[in-house]
Computed example of a mutant assay.
Amino acid sequence: MLRRRRTVDPLEALSNGERGVLALMADGLSNSAIARRLHCSPKTVEKRTASMSRELRLPLTESEGRTDVNLRALAVLTFLRSAGFE
Rank of each mutant, 00 (worst) to 15 (best):
P59R: 12
S15M: 10
E18G: 03
R19Y: 03
R36W: 14
P42K: 02
R57Y: 00
A50R: 07
L58V: 04
L77H: 06
E18I: 04
T61E: 10
E86D: 13
R3H: 10
M52P: 01
A50V: 15
R5P: 14
T78I: 11
E12I: 10
L24C: 04
E12V: 05
L74F: 10
G28S: 11
R37H: 15
N16F: 04
E46I: 06
L60E: 11
L71A: 07
S51T: 05
G17Y: 00
L29K: 13
P59D: 08
C40Q: 10
L2E: 10
R6P: 00
G84A: 09
S41A: 12
G28Q: 09
E64R: 13
F85R: 04
E55C: 07
P42Y: 08
T44A: 15
P42S: 11
E55P: 02
P42C: 12
E62F: 05
R81V: 02
A13C: 14
S82T: 08
R4Y: 05
R48C: 03
D68C: 06
L22M: 13
M52F: 07
R66I: 05
S53N: 03
L60H: 09
A35I: 04
V76L: 13
L2H: 11
M52H: 09
S63A: 02
F85E: 02
N31T: 13
L80S: 03
R4D: 13
R66H: 08
A35R: 08
R66M: 13
R4N: 13
I34Y: 06
A33D: 08
L24N: 09
M25S: 15
A33I: 05
L2R: 11
L24W: 03
T44C: 15
V45E: 08
S41N: 05
T61P: 09
R3W: 09
R72A: 08
L14I: 05
N16S: 03
R4V: 14
F85V: 01
S53T: 01
L80P: 01
L60G: 11
A26R: 05
R54A: 06
F85A: 02
R81M: 07
V21N: 00
A26I: 07
S41L: 05
L29M: 12
G20D: 12
A83E: 01
R48E: 08
L71D: 13
A83C: 05
G84S: 11
R19N: 10
R81L: 02
S51P: 01
T49W: 14
L29W: 09
G28R: 06
V45M: 08
V69I: 07
S63T: 00
P59K: 14
R6G: 03
R66A: 10
R37Y: 14
S63W: 00
L60Q: 13
E12L: 04
R54M: 04
M52A: 08
T67G: 03
E64K: 10
G20F: 00
E12D: 01
G65C: 03
L2A: 15
R57M: 01
G84F: 00
D27K: 11
S15L: 10
R4L: 10
K43M: 12
P10N: 14
A35K: 06
T49S: 10
N16A: 04
L74V: 14
V21S: 00
R3Q: 07
L58G: 01
A26P: 14
G65H: 07
V45N: 06
A23H: 12
L14T: 01
D9K: 07
